[in-house]
Design a protein around this nucleic acid. Structure first.
Lengths: 193, 193
DNA sequence: AAATGACGTTGACATTTGTCACGCTTTTTG
DNA sequence: CAAAAAGCGTGACAAATGTCAACGTCATTT
């Protein structure tokens, strides 16, 4: 599965074969079964985690016990709790597999070491973070400016792959609307077609 | 006014006096009058901009002509359009001063040069971006999980300084609710006290 | 193969939030 | 200082969205 990651990484930055060997040597693969959690609230996130197959979500419980999906992750995405990783503080989130999945993992120690050693990897990480920030901005804009229907359509259009991989009630929780509302929006659309 | 910035920066990273001199030499100050825009939709954001006094907001118009506030900036904050800056593409946003303000400015060229030259400054920039990302996550969580009232209370509590510097209808647009709803929430609270 | 639980849908109704219209006060501007 | 605009609040009503309860289907597990 490492070949998938190799191809992915080389789309972002130039990496020599030597460097790639180092990155590979520091990594290991893991299989995750459906519904398995790889981060529980209260734990500290101490790895870098690249998804080669399958699907995950990052979510959080609010005071009333309902859960809210902060982010999804599918093939060729990273999944993490940046805040817990950076500040080494207990996470307020959970990460669970929505399907049987395989991931490539680096311990924080090794990943940080690689970042120091390989400038291109550091550059990659900066670009990834910058893109993540931009994406967050766009999501915020969508959340404050769009109706439920508009949010739904935009999500479907922007992340079709994700949309087709995850249960609808989690899409609803990601968009900040109830699953019933989402269901009715969908009904309206099937009528119009 | 540069002393303000100096103090700010040294809270984040260690900077020698030599380095600080370089940073200062590359900067210049500007006074901005109330309602003046320092970024118009369609322009490319090509500076680094630190607010020493006053107040700004980053906002965007949606198709129906209403405007939506993505972010505020007050004393000791940065204000920018990261996406336009990084990708050098025309901005979809506007930045305007909500009060007479003073800012410290570096051109993109000089700022990037300083980042290359001064490792601590690069480190600072990375930390700032990381924190910005974490903050975005928290805002997204608030937007998808909280009621209008909860969003209002959280904003007031988390950013009291900002809250007390900006018009209420912009707070409403920042929270993604109408100004009338915000007004009514406030009324409920004055009654309870 | 049966049992279980996840998933999606729907109706009825409650609640929240938005929209429009208006007026008053404060701030800004010429 | 006077005029104009911004800012804030509020009533009446409309629209959007949430809640609760129930049902059928499908997938997973045992």
């Amino acid at each position: 599965m490492f070949e998938v990651f190799e191809k992915y990484l080389r789309q972002w930055v130039e990496i020599s074969d030597e460097e790639m060997k180092l990155i590979r040597a520091a990594s290991f693969e893991r299989k995750i079964r459906k519904w398995q959690s790889i981060l529980h609230e209260g734990e500290v996130w101490k790895i870098a985690c690249f998804i080669t197959t399958g699907c995950f979500r990052l979510y959080r419980f609010s005071a009333d016990g309902t859960d809210h999906t902060l982010r999804f992750g599918v093939e060729n995405w990273w999944i993490s709790d940046q805040e817990s990783y950076n500040l080494e503080k207990p996470s307020e989130y959970n990460i669970e597999a929505l399907a049987a999945s395989t991931i490539i993992v680096w311990t924080k120690e090794k990943w940080e070491e690689l970042r120091e050693t390989i400038p291109a990897l550091k550059l990659f990480n900066e670009r990834l973070l910058a893109r993540g920030y931009e994406t967050s901005q766009q999501r915020i804009y969508s959340l404050i400016s769009n109706s439920a229907e508009e949010k739904y359509l935009e999500f479907q259009k922007t992340y079709p792959k994700v949309f087709n991989s995850v249960p609808l009630h989690m899409v609803a929780s990601y968009l900040g609307i109830s699953r019933e509302t989402l269901s009715r929006i969908r009904k309206d659309f099937t009528r119009r077609d």
